[in-house]
């Protein structure tokens, strides 16, 4: 089976007065239809830039290199008008903050009707019926009445449900969820994750789920790509990565989250801070913070994980 999305050597650089800034530096992964990829990393590792590049939402002045094929269509070279036929219909996106992602002046119904009618020939009444159906699907009680609600009348969790309905109603092949639960309370987070899991089964949804939260990614993803400093540090099946991380960075991340590793008394943290994209370290970009680093790590860039997954590391750690 050929991949729905295959990303090869994708790079994103932003134009700044001090010269181009390479936020994403040659990442590759592929995604089968119906699979969920968790893209994990700290702030500034390039995961949101990757998401924006896949949706054509990079700010003006940003450049993409490499390639990203969705069902055989090359995304990186699309013009803005051609992007419009991709967005919504092929790739849709759910944003981090449901509080600000809905237009405060439009009702929930108007949002959905507008999006539905952009992508399908529908009469106003048919679109309203479809809108109510979508609200029901995302678990909003009394959907017909809720169509008239304005965003400020809904809770954060409800708004994120509306955002998910909006993103899914055009019937996209791929859903990019950029930290969809980060801005929500923990209990609501769990509900949204359950909803995504249900919808995924129902619609055979393919999804890229971006998060910094390993606890969240464990619940939704089949495969995980851990990003560090603009590159993929480790990629593979979710279970394998979470139980037996190979890259010292992944290991460090897991050690710093309560509940993943056997109790050792105290949570560990990774020494140092994420380097700035202006000043990436040479060789393996994790080497200044890595306990296992030696000369080769400093001088040579480790090979990126192949299609089967793996760690971009010269000294992968064994499972404990």
């Amino acid at each position: 089976m050929s991949a729905l999305l295959s990303v090869e050597d994708l790079g994103v650089s932003f134009a700044t007065p001090e010269g181009p800034l390479r936020a994403v530096d040659g990442i590759s992964f592929s995604l089968e239809r119906g699979a969920v990829l968790g893209l994990v990393g700290e702030s500034g590792c390039g995961k949101s830039a990757t998401a924006s590049a896949l949706c054509g939402l990079l700010p003006p002045g940003a450049r993409t290199t490499g390639s990203a094929h969705l069902l055989g269509q090359e995304l990186t070279s699309l013009s803005e008008p051609s992007w419009r036929s991709v967005r919504g219909r092929r790739i849709s996106m759910v944003f981090q903050d449901p509080m600000s992602s809905l237009n405060p002046l439009l009702s929930v119904g108007e949002h959905l009707v507008e999006t539905l009618r952009t992508h399908q020939e529908l009469s106003r009444t048919a679109a309203r019926t479809a809108a109510a159906e979508w609200l029901r699907r995302v678990g909003i009680p009394d959907p017909a009445a809720r169509l008239a609600s304005f965003p400020h009348e809904l809770s954060g969790g409800m708004r994120q449900r509306v955002m998910i309905a909006l993103a899914l109603c055009p019937g996209p092949d791929l859903l990019v969820a950029d930290e969809p639960t980060t801005a929500l309370d923990v209990t609501i987070q769990a509900q949204i994750l359950d909803l995504l899991a249900t919808l995924r089964k129902e619609l055979r949804m393919t999804m890229i789920f971006i998060t910094h939260d390993l606890g969240v990614v464990e619940r939704v993803a089949d495969r995980i790509a851990v990003m560090y400093a603009g590159r993929v540090a480790e990629e593979g099946p979710a279970a394998a990565i979470l139980s037996a991380p190979r890259h010292p960075y992944t290991r460090g991340l897991l050690d710093s989250v309560p509940g993943f590793r056997p109790r050792t008394g105290r949570l560990l943290s990774i020494p140092g801070a994420v380097p700035s994209p202006r000043d990436w370290p040479s060789g393996c970009r994790f080497h200044p913070r890595c306990a296992h680093a030696d000369r080769i790590c400093e001088e040579t860039v480790p090979a990126a994980p192949g299609p089967e997954g793996g760690a971009a590391c010269f000294h992968p750690v064994g499972a404990r």
């Binding site: 419009r84 967005r87 919504g88 219909r89 944003f95 903050d97």
Partner: peptide, 26 residues
């Protein structure tokens, strides 16, 4: 810069529609 304009772009709305229906009414 606002999220809901980015969201309406991500949903595939046309620029005119985003301008007239989402940006200007604000």
């Amino acid at each position: 810069q606002s999220d809901f304009l980015a969201a309406s772009r991500a949903l595939g709305l046309s620029p005119w529609r985003i301008l007239w229906r989402h940006a200007l009414p604000q």
